[in-house]
Amino acid sequence: MANANAQPTEQNRISPASYLLIVIRLSLIFIVLCGLVYPLLSTGLAQLLMPKQADGSLLKDSSGKVIGSALIGQTFTDPALFQSRISSIEYKAEASGSNNYGPSNPDMLQRTADAVTGWKAGNPEVPVSELPVDLVTNSGSGLDPHISPEGARVQIPRISGLTGIPAAELEALVDKYTEGRDLGLFGEKRVNVLKLNAALTEQTAE
């Protein structure tokens, strides 16, 4: 089947040396094609056509200062800002990952219980039964930029109390930054915490 006019019974066989040469030459061709031409051509085209996306979707505030990447989460320690999910790497994006605790791991259960206790202390106005589980669990990447819309909403009473911004305004802000499912179908509704906090910070500054 290889070649319409080739026969498997062909008489003049290739010598081992020239056979080896074919293997080496073919390997070199594909090292160059797949290992250099393809990635460098990809990089060139991507940088030419879509430089913003190709450079990591950097996010700027209104003054034009880079405040991070729209795709990479950040730690927020100030209780007057929306908090991100738990990250075992504290959103240090030079690496990625999590502790990979199994579901029966006592350290994981303890960490989650501590997070729930901490939440109760910081947010006495909200019953714990409304606290969505994404806020007290570690994401897969440790860099999850999102929280669930419910996860943002339950933080409103705390932030409103600390900043004096009316809850209704914060709710409008959360609604504005809630991203729907992709194409109305795929994935989950979510809020980008960095974008939301950037907007909140500007609102507070005004």
Binding site: P103, T112, A113, D134, T137, S139, S148, E188, R190
Partner: peptide, 24 residues
């Protein structure tokens, strides 16, 4: 995870440890 459900939080999203919010 039943041990996390027992902590009283809203687990309607399912098991979110090790998962990303955008995927669920």
């Amino acid at each position: 995870n039943p041990q996390i459900t027992a902590m009283g939080v809203d687990v309607s999203q399912g098991s979110m440890e090790g998962k990303e919010v955008r995927f669920g």
